[in-house]
Simulated scan of single mutants.
Amino acid sequence: MAATRLTATVAGCAAAAAALAALTACAPPGANVDNTVDAAQAQAQVPALNDVAGESAVPVVAPVGSQTTALKAASIPKMGKVVTDQDGFVLYRFDKDTAKPPKSNCVDKCAQVWPPAITDGNPDLSGVDPSVVGTVTRADGARQITLAGWPVYRYIGDPKPGAWKGQNVGGVWFVVAPDGKKNLTCLPTPAPTAVEPPAASAAPTGDGGTGGY
């Protein structure tokens, strides 16, 4: 009598991706005033497969932020002294954060509109005093750059390097100066409203506790 042997092999793989615009009254000459964001900061969710037999795969969410390898002091028309990243995008600080101790309170939808300036190590510095540069560990484990203790961010509403449409957004976001202080040279009034997160965003409902980010 012949016996029938059935061998079943089932393999599964799941992947999810989430793709990550505020007019200012003091826009620099020639600045693009179109708030449409062509490319959003991406937040990827990938499966991490465990080597232990019989153990379920555990999804790992990549930290949200803008990889920042350099901090550069620059001078922008109408605004004056600012700090940019390696691509020339202006960096900002958030009044609802704290500097002593350093802490970021921009999470969820807020962090999609204001990607944290994250680093894998020491960024290259140009015109920025090393003594004011530090990092703070975010809830997702990413290391965010700080200036004088203040976490710094990019703004997805800035259409190009050198733009500073994030100035005074919500009355709580400001261009950061090389010493970590707020650059208040030009304050658009009334305070602009932040752009919305990308439509395809999978962020939780709400603004991450920022009160309008």
Rank of each mutant, 00 (worst) to 15 (best):
T135F: 03
E55H: 07
V10C: 11
R5I: 15
D129V: 01
G30I: 08
A73Y: 04
N35M: 09
L49M: 07
L91M: 14
A139F: 04
P188R: 06
F94K: 00
G121E: 04
G171N: 07
A53I: 14
P192D: 06
P130L: 02
A42R: 10
R143C: 02
V132M: 00
C106S: 01
W164R: 05
P102S: 15
A177M: 08
R93H: 00
A8W: 13
P178E: 07
V128Y: 06
A15D: 13
T98G: 02
T193N: 14
A21I: 11
G212D: 03
A200N: 12
Y155A: 02
A25D: 11
D85V: 01
I118Q: 07
G171R: 02
G30E: 07
A139I: 08
P159Y: 05
L187N: 14
L6F: 08
A17S: 11
L6P: 02
N183Q: 10
Q67E: 13
Q41L: 11
L184D: 06
V52K: 10
A203K: 09
N122R: 06
D51W: 06
D95V: 10
N105M: 00
K96H: 14
S131M: 03
P197L: 13
V60F: 10
P151W: 02
P29Y: 03
W173K: 06
T84Y: 04
L187S: 10
G127V: 00
K109Y: 01
K100I: 06
M1I: 07
L184C: 03
P59M: 08
A40P: 09
D124F: 02
G54C: 06
N35L: 12
A22C: 05
A8R: 15
P159V: 05
L20R: 12
K160I: 07
T69S: 13
Q167L: 09
T7W: 03
D38K: 14
P77C: 07
I118V: 15
A3F: 15
L49N: 11
T193V: 15
L49F: 13
V33Y: 00
T135A: 08
T135H: 00
T68Y: 01
T7Y: 05
P197H: 14
W150S: 08
R138S: 00
V64N: 06
A11M: 10
G170P: 04
V46L: 09
Q167H: 09
A48E: 01
V37R: 05
A111H: 06
R154D: 09
